[in-house]
């Protein structure tokens, strides 16, 4: 269990992390989300005992980063931002070096290194110099190094930045696999990443937690309204929007675009969450012979909207 208590970090006059507290129970994947410079990396650096907080503390299984720093470091596997590794070493040498630093018993070193090479898909590059590897492979070497001592907690700082879509998918599925038995903390500024792998999200902005809840909770707390997107072609006049106002349950209309030549109107209808007006809408449009529905779909408030709303306002919302 990880318990972060009132964590604060000042860099000179700049407060990078401001009184952050959260608790993470055993296992699962937790995303730390925030725009660049929000304090994610600083928070992780303090949790991994790279630097101490200005105030506050972190407990891991009742162990404290001040008193039990070495023990905590033994429990954590950490992939720092940008995945720094010794570029002049070759992959196997590097893994043996990390294994030695991590005090892996002599009789299981060979086995562990081999397991890491298998599970991180490094067979093809074992003998190569790390400096020659592609970014995706380098990231995997970093991940192998973070995992070699089989830590209970895995902290990954932007593990997929700079990778191509295939590599991202691979790393994500690897992380998902790991999340089944370990606590995995992933920091990222990429929203789709959080949606793809995380069970819980902690959104940080300007050093403060602005939201901390499961993915569904965050999304549903923003769903006071439902939203439908329409694309309708009209045979006569293109100005069809006002006619929808009369329908019961419609709260507001929002024009997206209007093409005068082919008389296509694209717009959104917002309606209250409590009643489903979709059948009514459909029947209404069907009655009007001049109209053809080209498209009709429910719009989700995407995490992106939520993220933007939360981090731009910088207010404390949706604290579950």
């Amino acid at each position: 269990m990880i318990k972060v208590q009132n964590l604060t970090k000042d860099y000179g006059h700049l407060r990078a992390v401001d009184n952050i507290s959260f608790t993470i129970p055993k296992s699962g994947i937790i995303g730390i989300l925030g725009p660049n410079g929000a304090g994610k990396t600083t928070t992780l650096k303090m949790m991994t005992c790279f630097m101490p907080p200005t105030e506050g503390t972190v407990f891991i299984d009742e162990k404290n980063i001040y008193q039990n720093s070495v023990e905590i470091r033994k429990m954590i596997g950490y992939l720092p931002e940008g995945c720094p590794i010794y570029t002049e070493m070759n992959v196997v040498d590097f893994l043996y070096f990390i294994a030695e630093l991590r005090d892996i018993p002599k009789d299981s070193v060979n086995r562990r290194v081999k397991e890491m090479i298998d599970s991180c898909g490094l067979e093809e590059v074992v003998g190569k110099e790390i400096g020659e590897l592609s970014k995706g492979y380098r990231q995997r070497v970093g991940l192998a190094a973070a995992l070699i001592h089989d830590p209970e907690i895995l902290i990954l700082d932007e593990p997929t930045s700079g990778l191509d879509p295939n590599q991202i998918a691979e790393i994500r599925s690897l992380i998902k696999q790991l999340g089944k038995e370990k606590t995995v903390l992933v920091s990222t500024h990429i929203l789709s990443e959080v949606e793809a792998i995380c069970e819980r999200v902690i959104i940080i902005d300007r050093g403060k937690i602005v939201a901390d809840a499961s993915l569904e909770e965050i999304q549903s707390s923003f769903h006071n309204q439902n939203r439908i997107y329409f694309e309708i072609q009209s045979k006569k006049d293109a100005d069809i929007l006002p006619e929808f106002e009369a329908i019961k349950g419609v709260e507001s209309l929002q024009l997206f675009s209007k093409h005068e030549e082919d008389m296509i109107t694209k717009f959104f209808i917002n309606y209250s969450k409590d009643m489903d007006i979709r059948p009514e809408l459909y029947n209404f449009i069907k009655k009007n012979k001049d109209w053809t529905i080209l498209e009709m779909r429910t719009e989700q408030h995407s995490l992106e909207d939520i993220f933007r709303q939360l981090t731009e306002k910088g207010e404390e919302v949706a604290h579950a």
Partner: peptide
């Protein structure tokens, strides 16, 4: 190169 973070976060 940032590798300082790598060795300083291992139990050394």
């Amino acid at each position: 190169s940032g590798t300082i973070e790598l060795i300083c976060t291992s139990p050394v």
